[in-house]
Each structure stands twice: as C-alpha cells, then as structure tokens.
C-alpha cells in the first residue's frame, strides 16, 4: 500500500517509465547535450504559421514519439497530463486535441513536468489507470511575446535573465518491470520571499526548491549523498548559488550531487543565455533525454528530479506583486 509521509507520497507499486521522448529547437540542439534529443527542427515555427502552433506541434511530436518508443498506441493510454506556459495552456490543448486520450490540463509554470509526471505516476500506482502520459512544453518565441517584448524589439537583457527553452518532453508511465520507476513524489508548497524582478526567476524559485528538498530529506530521513544526482529544473546559475546558500543555512549540503537542467541544456560560455535555460520545456527535455538515457543504461540508479516554477503572470508583475515559487520533487530509481 502506498503511503503519505507529510507531503512525500511513497509509491509502492513502482509505476515505471515505459517510454519517453524529447523535441527541441535549434538553440537546444546546438547545446552540450544536443545529441541526446529525439527530434529537432531548425525552423522555430516547426512548419506551422505561428509560434503557438509550433509549441503544440512539439507536444504532439513528443507524445507520438514516446508512444512509438514504448511500442503502444494512443488508445492504450488512459490519461494524459499536459501543461505549458501559454495563456489557458493552449500549447497542450491544441497539441493533444486530435488524440483520443482523456485529457487533464495542469499548470505549475516551469514546475509542470514534475507535477504532471507525479500525477501520472500516482494514477498508475493507485491502479486507477494502466498507462498514463505526462507531457509539457515551452517555446522561446511564444513565451517572449506573452511575457516580455516582441522578438524584434531591441533591448539589453540583464545578466540575471534566462532563456526559455524551445522544447517538449513526454514520459509514458506503465507497469512494466525492469524499467526506471517512480519511487516517490513530493508536491511542494508555494514559497514567496518577496522577489519582484521578473528578470531574476532563479532567485524567485530557489526558496521553493530549498523548501521542497528540505521537506523531502526530512520525510525520508535521507541526505544528498544517498542519491546519484539531484537535478533541479531551471534555477540557472544565479538560482543554483542561492539554493546552496539557503540549504547550507539549514545544514543541508547538496553541492556534491547537484546539477541544474537550465545549466545542462546550454553552454553559458558559448551560447548567449545569460543565467541559463528556463521554461517547462527545460526540465522536460533534459529529463526525457539525458537523464532517462542514464537511468536506462543504469549509470544513474537513484535520482531526484525537482522542477521549479515561478507562478507569475504579466498582469501580476504589472500590478507590483512579488513572484511566488513552487517546486515538485520526483524520486526515480532503477533496479
């Protein structure tokens, strides 16, 4: 029987990863882990006539590729959990609309990959579903036009800014043995320490990541060294350093095991990304390529994956609100 220790849900039935796929754009393909991704298109519109449609197309390709790799059809899937950053989550709804799969849209800003994956795993673990899919996406161009300025507008970005990843990642959850499995899910609390600078998302999200990690270690009575690697979603260079500061104050040191998907996907020295990558697609694509490959070949056997989200909207920023952060943690293991 699965059980809940505070906010950590231990899944006893080992819901496993039976398929996964990642789709990225040109900038991500040129990054240090470019060879790990399944599909890419150098055209930022992915053959469509708008960036929003391109994002939906990426989600569709990600799900289709993941199903193909799992050797199953759409009709075998009981539920899909999908999310993105666009208003009303149109990246997901329009991406999944022609698939005959019951759909649950979720929003957790950039934390959506861990959120959807956690929910997908819990549904399979409970026996309510046999197979589920978690998919999320983000697109540099659609995010820029929604949250910031038009692409052609000339401006200097501050050093604390991050680049939204163009990409989508999908994970298929089932019950096959001898596959990487979801051992536990920790849904985080919303943490807001008053950061108002929407060009410093790493700083806005770091406290929630610290809180979730601390909760998880307390709930499971483990330490960083018990895991092969700890991946946060998109804290970037600045957020990562702040996370270390916050955790050290709590006597938790994760530096020997930690990495950040936002630092993994781009080369900060070579690519013009300032503090690193961000967006739902950042943790989604790194998880469903680089990390999954290493779980499959058993280079990694026990990992923590923490997607980090900044729960702001263009309206809340204009109204002078601070930026609440949210982080969800997934513990993935393989035998």
């Amino acid at each position: 029987m699965s059980k809940n220790i505070n906010n950590t849900i231990i899944l006893r039935n080992k819901p496993s990863v039976i398929g996964y796929a990642s789709v990225v754009g040109k900038h991500e393909k040129e990054g240090p882990i470019g060879d790990e991704f399944d599909c890419f298109d150098k055209d930022p519109r992915f053959g469509e006539d708008s960036f929003e449609k391109a994002e939906s197309r990426m989600q569709k390709i990600a799900v289709e590729t993941a199903l193909k790799k799992a050797n199953i059809n759409e009709t075998d899937i009981d539920l899909v959990f999908a999310g993105d950053l666009l208003n009303q989550c149109i990246g997901s709804t329009f991406g999944i609309r022609n698939m005959q799969i019951p759909f649950i849209g979720v929003y957790g800003a950039c934390s959506t990959m861990a959120l959807s994956l956690g929910l997908a795993a819990i549904f399979v673990d409970s026996g309510l579903s046999e197979k589920t899919v978690a998919v999320t996406s983000s697109h540099f161009c659609s995010a820029e036009r929604q949250y910031r300025f038009p692409l052609e507008y000339g401006a200097i970005r501050p050093q604390t800014a991050q680049r939204t990843v163009t990409g989508a990642g999908a994970t298929v959850i089932g019950t096959e043995a001898n596959r990487p499995f979801i051992n536990s899910v920790t849904f985080g609390k919303i943490v807001d320490l008053g950061v108002k600078d929407s060009n410093n998302m790493g700083a806005a999200m770091a406290p929630s990541a610290a809180e979730t990690i601390k909760d998880f270690f307390n709930n499971t009575d483990t330490v960083a060294e018990d895991y092969d690697i700890i991946y946060t979603g998109d804290l970037g260079y600045i957020g990562t350093n702040i996370l270390y500061d916050l955790l050290l104050k709590e006597n938790i040191d994760i530096r020997c095991r930690h990495n950040d998907c936002g630092l993994k996907i781009y080369d900060r020295n070579r690519q013009d990304v300032h503090s690193g990558g961000s967006g739902c697609g950042c943790s989604a694509t790194v998880l469903n390529s680089y990390i999954m490959h290493r779980l499959e070949d058993k280079t990694l056997k026990n990992i923590l994956f923490i997607s980090t989200g900044a729960l702001l909207s263009p309206t809340s920023v204009l109204q002078g609100e601070s930026i609440p952060g949210i982080s969800h943690l997934i513990n993935i293991k393989c035998n």
């Binding site: 200097i156 501050p158 050093q159 604390t160 320490l193 008053g194 950061v195 410093n200 700083a203 406290p207 260079y237 600045i238 350093n241 702040i242 500061d245 916050l246 503090s275």
Partner: peptide, 12 residues
C-alpha cells in the same frame, strides 16, 4: 533573502 539575492545576482 533580498540580501542573498543581491549578493548572488550577477551585475550588468
């Protein structure tokens, strides 16, 4: 926290 952020944020 704002002091930590200020310290860690890379300046232009």
């Amino acid at each position: 926290y704002s002091e930590i952020v200020e310290l860690r944020s890379v300046k232009s």
